Simulated scan of single mutants.
Amino acid sequence: MRSFYSLLPLLNWHKKKMNDLTVDLLLGGKFRMPPEMFNDICAALAASCRYFCPECDAAGRAGFATVQKVTVALRMLAYGGPVDSLDEYIRMGESTVLETVNKFTRAIVAIFGPEYLREPNEHDIARLHAKTEERGFPGMLGSIDCMHWEWEKCPVSLHG
């Protein structure tokens, strides 16, 4: 087992890497979220899921920082595209990207689900009705989801 002092260079490297990525990604407005929110997500993931904590491999090389893993998961979910497109940007292999996205989505639901993925209570419904009424849609709860668009390649079994 390594002592705490032998891990200091690794921790300093991750701290520097995190600061560099935070400045580049967040202040550049890539994800359109405040840096505080991104940092809160990173901290919550690192605190609840060991996968998101920085570690060394068997050769003593530093693994991916929490910020790198969160960044790759957010980029995949926000922009889509092929997995290997992140290879040059984050320098993370395809299988690691897929594993990170899987663990990220499960951890986000586990951590933030009870607060944000719950049924609306009476207070929430009243607030939403008031907001939609002032926008000109009285009595609507939800959103218009573009149902008027024609789906050209719709399977015959789903035509309605």
Rank of each mutant, 00 (worst) to 15 (best):
Q68Y: 01
I108D: 02
H159E: 11
A44V: 05
P120C: 11
H159K: 15
H129N: 13
T105D: 04
K131S: 13
E36H: 11
N102W: 05
A130L: 07
Y79E: 15
T66L: 03
E134P: 00
N121Q: 13
A43W: 08
K103H: 05
F137A: 10
L45E: 04
P34K: 06
L21S: 04
S157R: 11
I125N: 07
H123G: 03
S95D: 04
T96E: 03
V156R: 13
Y79P: 04
L86T: 04
K30M: 14
R75W: 03
F31E: 04
H123M: 04
F104E: 01
A43Y: 10
M1N: 11
I41C: 04
E133G: 15
Y89L: 02
V72T: 06
I108P: 02
L74N: 07
E115S: 15
M76C: 06
A73S: 15
E36Y: 08
A58R: 14
N12V: 09
A65T: 12
L25W: 03
W13K: 14
R75G: 02
E133V: 02
M92P: 00
N19W: 06
R106P: 01
L7N: 10
A46I: 02
Y5C: 03
P120S: 11
G142M: 14
W149V: 08
M147Q: 12
G136R: 05
T100A: 08
L21V: 02
T105L: 11
Y116M: 14
C49I: 03
A107Q: 10
A43K: 12
L25Y: 03
D145R: 13
S85C: 05
M92Y: 01
R61P: 00
L128E: 04
P114F: 10
E55T: 13
V70Y: 02
R61V: 03
N12C: 13
E133P: 01
G60M: 13
V156W: 06
F112S: 07
E94N: 00
I41L: 12
F104S: 04
I144D: 04
L128R: 03
C56N: 11
A110V: 07
M1G: 15
S85I: 00
N102V: 03
C49T: 11
Q68K: 03
